[in-house]
Design a protein around this nucleic acid. Structure first.
Lengths: 237, 237
DNA sequence: TGTACATCAGTGAACGCGCGTTCACTGATGTAC
DNA sequence: TGTACATCAGTGAACGCGCGTTCACTGATGTAC
């Protein structure tokens, strides 16, 4: 027995349909194809009718970006959840491969989150996106935490908590109390490493140079584990 | 005494002005601001008049991308040229810092080359862009060549020439005959590492998490040199 | 040096397009008696 | 169970905008005699 009225249910379903259609348009025809008129056309209704759901085009895009972040976060959590107590190297590889799988499956979504924004789009000053990003950084930091004692420090001078965004620092200290800021900086650099290969591949720059970008990615992960003091055998075991 | 007629000179100057204005529009208002009408407006002429210079909007964008590649390549060559026989680690850092400097100075240009293309733009099938990209990969490979003998191999299974784009392979073999394909794959991964941090920074994702993205970049370069078997002292000497 | 003609860069008006947004309205769905 | 009213999702027409592209044209610049 739902507490929703029939009207509320229909309205919620319409919201879902709008989001689904927007994602489909994004995937099929790129960010340029996202317009209120196109969405309305696809839904079989009038452009003006959409204003009953979103006050503005930018609001719709903001909601879409939130949806994408949620989808990505769920994918990553599901991957890590499938091996909760497993070997640390395996977990890092799992995380990275899940990130890649999501990016390959949603290239336009990846661009929308990490690349240049839709033309003319003005994001809200403090939306959900930065928060989602910090959360994902914190997850990565907690992965790094396990390896941190074995990483041979090399950088000239450690990082300070003041070098990090206060809210990220807070989030990390809450989930991984003993991790020093230098390790968080390392987590950000690891993010950069996976992001770099992914971004090049998604934008078609890697595929032109190499036959199998996924292999290059795996090789990079292999070296990453070594760098983290995790033996390859630990990872492939 | 120029062999150009007055008309030819004026025409060449107009071409230069078009490119300069397009680059300025790109830098000031983003890729969405690039339109024939906007360029014409900025030049104080009519949109139709531009068709005497480019047959189509996409032709203009193609020319612009070529211009950007040239600008980037020149910057990198200038950086390496300033220290021709220098220490290998220094040269790699020089290269990477020049890449970053160019990207920070031309964020929109960086996006246009490496990120999602302008909405609706269809690149020519085999334009100058892929060629320029291969050339830049070859330059990086030749930098890696010096360090290659000292890199401790870790990857499970070497790369084959067949794993690489034939034209890239040819280019590398011409400039660095002894470099194995596995080292070229390493060069591509290094490209990914610097590209990742740059792409995140340019798109505003790093600046949200860390106070000084340039320091993170330098730290990563530091670890990169160590990974390549070049001692930090060699690099900072 | 001066005149007649050819070249050609740029004009200005028009075309059709898709866009975001507004607004008076209709008509179906819900609620109260 | 039936009637009167309120709600509210969606219509359809219109607004002004900037876009790429075409085309007949004008008028200045160059060339040939």
């Amino acid at each position: 027995v739902s507490t929703q009225s029939r009207r509320e249910r229909l309205r919620a379903e319409a919201f879902e349909e709008i989001k689904a259609i927007t994602l489909r348009l994004l995937a099929e025809h790129g960010p340029g194809a996202i317009s209120l008129r196109a969405i309305a056309r696809e839904m079989g209704m009038t452009a003006g009718g959409l204003y009953g759901y979103y006050a503005t085009r930018d609001d719709l895009i903001t909601a879409l970006i939130g949806e994408l972040y949620t989808s990505l976060a769920e994918r990553l959590e599901a991957a890590l959840g499938s091996l909760p107590g497993g070997d640390l190297g395996e977990r890092i590889v799992l995380w990275a491969e899940a990130l890649r799988a999501w990016a390959i499956a949603n290239p336009e979504g990846f661009q929308l989150i990490y690349g240049a924004p839709v033309a003319g789009y003005q994001p809200p000053p403090e939306g959900a996106a930065p928060e989602a990003e910090r959360r994902m950084c914190a997850v990565l930091a907690s992965l790094v935490a396990g390896a941190w004692p074995y990483v041979r420090e090399s950088q000239p001078g450690a990082y300070d908590w003041a070098d990090l965004d206060p809210r990220l620092a807070e989030q990390v200290r809450a989930s991984t109390p003993d991790l020093p800021p230098t390790a968080v900086a390392l987590a950000l650099r690891i993010w950069g490493r996976v992001h770099g290969l992914l971004s090049l591949e998604i934008n078609g720059h890697l595929g032109r140079q190499v036959r199998d970008p996924s292999r290059l990615y795996r090789t990079e992960l292999h070296d990453l584990l070594r760098f983290l003091g995790l033996t390859p055998s630990q990872a492939s075991a």
